[in-house]
Amino acid sequence: MKTVLQLEYAALLLLGTFAFAATGWSWWWFLGLFFLPDLSMFGYIFSQKAGAWTYNLFHHLGLAVIVYFAGKYFSSTELELAGIILFSHSAFDRLLGYGLKYSDSFQNTHLGRIGKNRA
């Protein structure tokens, strides 16, 4: 099952990359903004619950799609770009096994435990 999920997330990352290519933005924007959603981990400074909430918000594929289509609807290339970056980054994280976080621990994700102490 893990391989099937990784293939699915690889396909989603490829979709996000193709969507970015269609925007006409320079590839430097894609590379420069790709890890920006990880700033949401700063929520963990306040608490596990706040960190999980902010991380999950900025790594939710559904939100990424909504932001992208909002950009289409409002003719905002910046919103489209934000949606594509959120989508692509989230697919990349999931491809690596980093899922949405539970509020009890950063290592506890919807895809299983991550890190050195996975047991």
Rank of each mutant, 00 (worst) to 15 (best):
F30N: 01
Q6M: 11
L15T: 03
F30T: 01
F35V: 01
T23H: 02
E8N: 11
G24R: 06
L13H: 08
L36K: 05
A22I: 09
W28Q: 11
A22M: 14
F20P: 01
A22C: 11
W28K: 13
A22H: 11
L7E: 10
A10C: 10
G32I: 02
W27A: 02
F30Q: 04
A19N: 08
L14E: 07
F18S: 11
Y9I: 01
W29Y: 12
A11Y: 11
A21H: 11
A19F: 07
Y9P: 00
E8F: 12
Q6T: 03
F20A: 01
L7S: 08
L12P: 04
L36Q: 09
T17Q: 15
F20C: 06
L14V: 06
A22S: 04
Y9S: 02
L36Y: 08
L15E: 07
L31N: 05
G24Q: 05
W27L: 10
L13Q: 14
Q6F: 09
F30E: 01
Y9V: 00
G16H: 12
L31M: 13
S26Y: 07
L31T: 00
L13S: 13
W25F: 15
S26W: 09
W28I: 03
G32H: 03
T23Q: 11
F18L: 12
T23F: 13
F18Q: 10
W25L: 14
S26E: 13
T17P: 07
Y9C: 00
T17V: 06
W27R: 02
Y9T: 00
A10H: 11
L36A: 13
W27D: 10
S26K: 14
A10M: 08
A19G: 07
F30C: 04
L31G: 05
L31P: 01
Q6R: 13
G32M: 02
L36T: 04
G16W: 06
A11K: 05
L33I: 01
G24H: 06
Q6L: 14
E8W: 07
A11G: 08
W25H: 11
F34C: 08
L33V: 05
A22T: 04
L13P: 00
T23G: 00
L36S: 06
E8Y: 10
T23P: 00
L33Y: 09
L36I: 02
T17S: 13
A21E: 11
G32C: 10
L14W: 15
F35A: 08
L12K: 09
F35P: 00
A11T: 03
G24C: 11
W29H: 10
F30V: 00
W29N: 07
L13D: 08
F30L: 06
L12Q: 15
E8H: 11
W27G: 04
T17Y: 15
L31H: 06
F18W: 12
E8R: 14
G16R: 15
L31V: 01
T17H: 14
W25Q: 13
A21W: 15
G16K: 13
L36R: 03
L36P: 00
L14M: 15
G16E: 04
A11V: 02
T23N: 03
